[in-house]
């Protein structure tokens, strides 16, 4: 394909990538947005989760060329450095929803997607919706609490 155009975190970008480049590699190696992480080979850990047109997807299971003309949001696009955190990020901080931080970008991005689809989800809903995201540190309890609180804060925002 050669050059592709897409929107990443609100900015138009042009990428020159091989056809077999995964979206996660385009983000990490070409755009140097290293927040999305690669934690498995089978698209199960969810550490690579980003949004395409506002929907959470696994960027390790999508080619960069498949994102042509689409709007991609990564963890880096939620709040600029120095600006206040997005309510979901803030809720992860307030609820100690992260430890080593490696799965965290994926967790925050799926958390926002859960909030989009469920408005104010309860803990049971959030646990079910985290089917595609693995964390080895937290035991999930505080992640679930963070997403419940973050979703409520997002709902309360104008």
């Amino acid at each position: 394909m050669g050059k592709i155009s897409l929107e990443v975190n609100g900015e138009d970008v042009e990428l020159d990538v091989a056809d077999n480049t995964l979206l996660i590699h385009a983000l990490r190696d070409h755009l140097r947005l290293t927040g999305a992480h690669m934690g498995c080979d089978t698209s199960q850990c969810g550490a690579c989760t980003v949004h395409i047109e506002g929907q959470a997807i696994k960027s390790c299971a999508m080619l960069a060329v498949q994102a042509e003309g689409r709007s991609v949001t990564t963890i880096e696009g939620l709040a600029d450095d120095g600006e206040p955190l997005h309510p979901m990020q803030q809720a992860f901080h307030d609820n100690h929803g992260l430890q080593c931080g490696f799965c965290t970008p994926g967790m925050v991005m799926i958390g926002i997607d859960i909030a989009r689809r469920h408005n104010v989800p309860d803990a049971a809903t959030v646990r079910h919706e985290l089917e595609g995201n693995l964390c080895r540190c937290t035991g999930y309890q505080n992640i679930v609490a963070a997403i419940v609180e973050g979703a409520a804060k997002m709902e309360a925002q104008p």
């Binding site: 947005l33 290293t34 880096e76 939620l78 931080g101 965290t104 970008p105």
Partner: peptide
């Protein structure tokens, strides 16, 4: 230490 992890700016 949370800020950099939450902003996707951890350095692994």
């Amino acid at each position: 230490e949370d800020g950099r992890f939450l902003r996707g700016k951890g350095k692994y």
